[in-house]
């Protein structure tokens, strides 16, 4: 498709040169729609790389405002953005990097009433949330709608990444059927996170999304990549699909999204109002 402008030919030249991408691949990127949950530590590198790569439409779900404690790792936002909605700060940064990209802000809490509608508008979803209820909500919605999902979680010096393609491999609930009891696994707010670890893990998510759009290589389907930043080592763990999984199994018992606040209460949790971003 040579309806690229001169500027686009130059901007995307290092992609087009790749045998696996070419002009056709670059057109696919420009035509694709990716939803990022959370414009935080993971969402920042994902958003930056997807925008730079020319992913045509990028939705961002985040209801928070930029806080000074975010800036150590959330590289979509700047000191001048303090107090601004993260969605808008992210949109500005990403559209500055690449005016070919349309960033759609979704400035609200995801819950069972809106998650299916939001996810339905996109081809691929990226989970960069900072709490378990949102992660289960997004996983379930993606399974129900058959949308590929790049999942990652980080804490301190550690990161976990996997790619969920419903029907082709395990989902998040196959890995962890239920969330841990509230308070057991600390948040980055409590336990800390090395900023660059978020960058490494988020960049892996971005690469996975681009590969899925281009239909090249092997995605992290059925594999959990565990990154240890202190040891500077990656371990790849093969995880099978669970045919008894409550959402993607042969006889699913979860057939509608579970509202995450209710989700916590159902399990007797005392977790306070979940935030979508850390």
């Amino acid at each position: 498709m040579s309806d690229f402008s001169e500027a686009q030919i130059e901007r995307y030249s290092r992609h087009i040169i790749l045998r696996e991408v070419g002009g056709k691949g670059q057109s696919k990127l420009l035509d694709s729609r990716v939803l990022i949950i959370g414009a935080g530590g993971l969402g920042s590198p994902v958003g930056l790389y997807l925008a730079a790569a020319g992913v045509g439409t990028i939705g961002i779900v985040d209801s928070d405002a930029v806080d000074l404690s975010n800036l150590q790792r959330q590289i979509l936002h700047a000191t001048t953005d303090l107090g601004r909605p993260k969605c808008l700060s992210a949109r500005e940064t990403m559209e500055d990097i690449n005016p070919d990209v349309c960033v759609v802000p979704h400035q609200f809490h995801l819950d069972s009433s809106n998650v299916l509608d939001v996810v339905a508008d996109y081809d691929i979803v990226v989970d960069g949330a900072d709490n378990f209820p949102t992660r289960y909500l997004v996983n379930d919605a993606c399974v129900m709608q058959g949308k590929p999902l790049s999942h990652a979680g980080i804490l301190r010096f550690e990161g976990h990444v996997t790619t969920i393609v419903p029907g082709r491999g395990p989902c998040y609930r196959c890995l962890y059927p239920e969330p841990p009891p509230p308070g057991l696994v600390p948040s980055c707010q409590e336990a800390g996170i090395l900023g660059a670890v978020a960058g490494i893990v988020g960049s892996i998510q971005a690469a996975e999304v681009l590969k899925l759009i281009l239909r090249i290589g092997d995605a992290l389907v059925g594999r959990l990549l565990v990154f240890d930043g202190l040891e500077m080592a990656f371990r790849s763990i093969e995880i099978p699909r669970d045919s008894g999984c409550s959402v993607c199994g042969d006889r699913p018992t979860i057939t509608a999204p579970i509202d995450y606040e209710e989700f916590c209460r159902l399990r007797g949790g005392t977790e306070s109002k979940p935030e979508v971003q850390s």
Partner: peptide, 14 residues
């Protein structure tokens, strides 16, 4: 270089 090749490649693809 490499824009000369990029432009050639885009034509070849079509």
């Amino acid at each position: 270089c490499p824009l000369n090749w990029v432009k050639t490649k885009l034509r070849l693809e079509e």
